[in-house]
Amino acid sequence: MKQWNGLLKKEWVTLKWPLLVSALLGIIVMSFVPHLIANIFGLEVHVFEVVLVICFIWAGASVLAPVIALFIMLEREIKRPDVWFHSTASIFKLVGAKAFFASLIGAVGLLIPTLVLAVQHVLFSSTMATFDDLFFFGSIFIVMIFAVSIIFMSIGFFFWVIDRLMKPYLKGFSIVATIIIFLVASRLYSLFVLSELYEKLILIGPIDLMKIKNPKINVDFIYLEHAETFFYTGEIVFDIFFTFIMFIIAAVLFEKKVRL
C-alpha cells in the first residue's frame, strides 16, 4: 500500500499545479461566461440554459481527459528507462497508478460541471426542469461519460503501446500502421456488435431506467415523455471485461518494451 501511495503521490506532485489551474479556470468559465454571453448578446433565454449547454459541452469533452492524462504521464517517463527498469513495483502497479490517477482526473473533470450546474440551478431558480429530473438524467449522463472515458483510456493505452512497439522498426510510419490497425479492429468490432452472436450472448438482462423514474419530464411547463431506456447487464459486464483485458494485455506488452 505504501508503494501504491508513493506512486500516486509522485503523479500528484508532478501534475498538481496544472490540474489546479485547469480546475479553477473551468469553474470560472462555467460560472461567469454564461452570464457574459447572455448579457452581451442579449439572449432571450434564461441564463441557466446557457450554463447547462456549457456544462454539458465541458462534461462531454471530459471523456478524453483520462486518456490524455495517461498519455502525458507515459510520454513524460518513457524516455527514462530507470523509472521502469529499476523500480521494484510490478508493471501493473506502475501503469495502474497512472491509469488510476488519470481516472481521478476524469472524475473530477465531470464533478466540476455537475457542481457548477447544481449551484446555478439553486441560485437562479430555473423553471427549465425540476432539480430531481435534472439530477436523475444528469447522473446517468455523467456515469455514462465516465464509463466511456475509462474504455477510451484502456483502448488508447493499448494502441499507444502498439505504436511504441513498432516504432523501432517503422520509425515515423508506426503511427500510420497503428491507425490502420485501429481502423481494422474498429470495423471488426462493429461487425461483431451487429452479429446475432452479440445479440444472443451480450444483449441480455435488460434494465429499463424509466421503470424507476417517471418518464414525463416537466420542461418549461411542457411535458416530454421518454420512451424505454434500456441498459443491458450483459453488455455492461462485457464492456468491463473487455476494458480490463485490453489494459492487462497492453501492460504486459509495455513491460516487454521497457524492461526486457
Rank of each mutant, 00 (worst) to 15 (best):
1 M>A: 03
3 Q>I: 13
3 Q>D: 13
3 Q>F: 07
9 K>N: 15
10 K>L: 06
10 K>F: 06
16 K>D: 02
17 W>E: 09
23 A>Q: 10
25 L>S: 14
29 V>A: 14
30 M>T: 05
30 M>V: 04
31 S>H: 09
32 F>A: 13
39 N>P: 00
43 L>N: 04
43 L>S: 01
44 E>Y: 04
45 V>L: 14
49 E>P: 05
50 V>R: 08
50 V>S: 11
50 V>I: 15
51 V>Q: 12
52 L>P: 00
53 V>E: 08
54 I>P: 03
54 I>A: 15
58 W>I: 05
63 V>S: 06
65 A>G: 04
68 I>F: 12
80 R>C: 05
85 F>K: 15
85 F>W: 10
85 F>V: 05
86 H>T: 09
87 S>I: 00
89 A>P: 03
90 S>F: 04
96 G>W: 09
112 I>V: 15
114 T>A: 09
119 V>L: 10
121 H>K: 00
123 L>V: 03
124 F>I: 02
124 F>T: 01
134 L>G: 00
137 F>L: 05
137 F>N: 07
137 F>G: 04
138 G>M: 04
146 F>M: 03
146 F>G: 00
148 V>K: 07
148 V>A: 11
152 F>V: 04
152 F>A: 12
152 F>I: 02
158 F>Q: 01
159 F>A: 07
159 F>G: 07
160 W>T: 03
164 R>V: 01
164 R>H: 03
165 L>E: 09
166 M>N: 08
174 S>M: 07
175 I>K: 13
176 V>W: 15
178 T>V: 12
180 I>T: 09
182 F>D: 01
183 L>E: 09
184 V>A: 11
191 L>P: 03
193 V>M: 14
195 S>V: 11
197 L>P: 00
198 Y>F: 15
202 I>R: 11
203 L>T: 10
205 G>D: 15
207 I>C: 12
211 K>S: 10
212 I>E: 07
220 D>A: 09
223 Y>W: 08
224 L>C: 03
225 E>P: 05
225 E>D: 10
233 T>M: 15
234 G>Q: 12
234 G>L: 14
234 G>T: 12
234 G>Y: 13
237 V>P: 03
237 V>D: 06
238 F>C: 11
240 I>H: 01
241 F>R: 01
243 T>R: 07
247 F>R: 01
253 L>S: 11
254 F>H: 14
256 K>H: 15
